[in-house]
Design a protein around this nucleic acid. Structure first.
Lengths: 243, 243
DNA sequence: CACAAACTGTGAGCACTGCTCTCGTTTCGT
DNA sequence: ACGAAACGAGAGCAGTGCTCACAGTTTGTG
């Protein structure tokens, strides 16, 4: 039986039989080899046969673990989301003064930037162009929400402390409140719609910047990415009402 | 001789011999077939052999026109940039009241959004993840600047009319002025550094939003993309000092 | 006009890919 | 202990990008 991603996780908790533990180890080895290949040759050139060669097994055996090359890529995708999410959560948690929401935002944004530059191919896998007609499996949505959740929560904390955007000069109409409804509810307490909208726009700015930088669209416009990124993050902090 | 992209353009101006015009026509036919394939199966699955089959020729013959599959994709890339650039320029030019810079910005942003949704695969080709280790050929940079140039120019026009962001509360330091220097000089007159920085941030917001929307990262957050996009664009207009 | 050089299309072929299927072996649950 | 499930190996299919030698055509020039 070819395991789903959800089963992979449940399995890693309690590998009972010898076969199950062997399976878990080999699954891990395949993912590690694939991750390495991903970093070396990129997603397009990732080859099941090369992974099999690397592990000294027949290519057909790999299909006992991942039903297709796309399934393997999806597993890497989930791991990448989780890795990024963990990096962002750690960066935010590392800010000792929890009331310094501006610092928490800078740490969050910096973590995204740093992670993306450290793992460009994994970033491309997650936030680049998906395989056309590709619908992200349900397994990917929860890990994908970890990073943005940090931003939303720190904004909620800011609002609780009397800072942060509360209104946008009447620029958010009822239809927009409905349109962004689902995302407002992920924090405790829920964000006001205006704050949610600003947060989404800032999120788009952050990933837009990282994508434009990593994908080479700023080569002739910006000479020093670090300086420019810091400025953009500061602007976003201002827009979010944190600074 | 396999033609470069630059030669392709020069050639299409003055096809003298019968052979040259046949070559131009077949080059065009290959590009058209490839564009159609691109829309149907996406960039990853675009196949030289399939294009050849579509045109009823041997696959090896295609290589007389494009040295490799990547070269063919690069040609499609350049055409996509040009197409998007033209759409944006037309949308801006269609605003009869040239002093209504907010309307021009909405038209510009809307053109990007509309074009991307009409040609998702071509958008992915231009603003999605590039082939890893891929350095955009010099042929692509000029067409790629057409769209952002519209934003920069309309902001310059706004400033000339007494509107638009002039300073950002001292948030732009000298290093940043140097970092974004090259881009400030593309308008006439040149933009103040603060305006350039804001424009770049807004540009990142725009493409960040379109990418997140098209690549499926907002599926569980936003219910109505049109409404949300309009709000984000309005926010950007406010940030740019246009509204 | 003649002719060599350049160009163009063909088909065979190489190395590679994702994936399937069958086969024998090993391990598991009962 | 035994049947079922899982496993790994190898052959094989259909497809890919790309190269090459070959044949035919067009071109600009002597």
């Amino acid at each position: 039986m070819v395991l789903s991603l959800g089963m992979m996780r449940a399995m890693s908790d309690a590998p009972r039989t010898a076969r199950a533990v062997a399976r878990a180890e080999l699954t891990r080895a395949i993912l590690d080899s694939a991750t390495q290949q991903l970093a070396e040759v990129g997603p397009a050139a990732l080859s099941v046969r090369a992974v099999a060669r690397d592990l000294g097994m027949a290519s057909s055996a790999v299909y006992r673990y991942f039903a297709s090359r796309d399934d393997l890529l999806t597993a890497l995708l989930v791991e990448a989301y989780d890795d990024l999410g963990a990096a962002v959560e750690e960066a935010d948690a590392a800010v000792t003064d929890r009331d310094d929401v501006a610092a928490r935002w800078r740490a969050t944004a910096g973590a995204v930037h740093d992670w993306a530059r450290a793992h460009p191919h994994r970033y491309a896998l997650t936030y680049g162009s998906p395989v056309p007609g590709y619908a992200a499996p349900q397994d990917t949505v929860e890990p994908a929400t970890r990073a943005p959740r940090v931003l939303l929560q720190l904004l909620a904390d800011a609002l609780a402390a009397g800072r942060g955007v509360r209104d946008l000069g009447g620029r958010v109409d009822p239809a927009e409140v409905a349109a962004t409804g689902p995302i407002s509810a992920v924090t405790e307490p829920p964000l006001p719609p205006e704050a949610t909208v600003r947060a989404l726009a800032v999120w788009a700015t952050l990933f837009g910047h990282v994508s434009l930088e990593l994908f080479g669209h700023m080569n002739n416009a910006v000479l020093d990415y670090d300086t420019h990124f810091a400025t953009v993050v500061d602007l976003a902090a201002y827009d979010l009402g944190l600074a």
